[in-house]
Simulated scan of single mutants.
Amino acid sequence: MILSSKGMNMDFAEIGAKIGVYFIPFLFALCFHEYAHGWVARRRGDNTAEMMGRLSMNPLVHMDMIGTLILPLVSIVLATPIFFGWAKPVPVNTRNLKNPRIDMFWIALAGPLSNILLAIVGSVLIAVVAKYFLGMTYANGMIEILKTFIVTNLFLAFFNILPLHPLDGGKVLARFLPAQWNYKLEQHEHITSMVLMILVLTGMLRILSVPVIWSYNHLVTLALGGFGI
Rank of each mutant, 00 (worst) to 15 (best):
I102W: 15
D64E: 05
N96W: 07
F158C: 04
V92N: 08
M57S: 11
N140S: 11
P72F: 01
L146G: 08
I150A: 10
I120M: 10
P81D: 05
F149T: 08
P59A: 09
L69M: 02
N140T: 13
L117K: 11
S114F: 05
A79C: 14
L71P: 00
R101T: 10
N153Q: 11
K147C: 13
L60N: 06
N93V: 13
F149V: 10
D103P: 05
L71G: 01
I70M: 07
T137E: 13
G135H: 15
M136E: 13
P59Q: 04
P89F: 03
T94G: 07
G53Q: 08
V77Q: 01
A79G: 08
A157G: 05
V61A: 05
E50S: 07
I126V: 09
K147L: 13
N160F: 13
V74E: 00
F84V: 03
V124A: 09
L164I: 04
M65K: 00
I116W: 14
I66K: 00
I161V: 12
G111A: 10
A108K: 10
A108I: 10
R95E: 13
R95V: 12
V124W: 05
K88S: 06
N47Q: 06
D46S: 15
M63I: 01
G135T: 15
N47C: 15
T68D: 00
I107W: 04
W86D: 02
T48G: 04
I70F: 04
G85Y: 00
I82Q: 01
L78E: 09
N115D: 04
V129W: 04
I66S: 01
A108Q: 12
I82C: 06
N93M: 14
W86R: 01
L118M: 07
F149H: 09
K147G: 12
P81L: 14
G85T: 00
R101Q: 14
Y132V: 13
N58D: 05
T48Q: 14
T68Y: 00
P91K: 09
L69R: 00
G67I: 00
L154K: 10
S123V: 08
F84P: 01
N58M: 01
N153C: 05
K147Q: 11
M52P: 10
H62K: 01
I145L: 12
V74I: 03
G53D: 13
N58I: 02
T94S: 15
H62N: 03
W106E: 07
S114D: 06
I116L: 13
I145Q: 15
G67S: 06
V61N: 02
G67L: 01
P59T: 05
L164N: 03
A157V: 03
I82N: 03
K88L: 04
P59N: 07
L78R: 08
M52W: 02
I126R: 07
F158K: 04
R54N: 06
P81A: 14
A130N: 10
N153K: 09
A127V: 06
T137F: 14
W106T: 06
L73V: 04
P112E: 02
A130F: 08
P163T: 02
A119M: 08
M142D: 07
L118S: 14
K131F: 15
I116N: 12
G85A: 02
I126M: 12
R54I: 03
G111N: 08
D46V: 11
D64C: 00
R101A: 06
I66M: 03
I76W: 14
A157I: 05
P100M: 12
R101H: 13
A79E: 13
R101N: 10
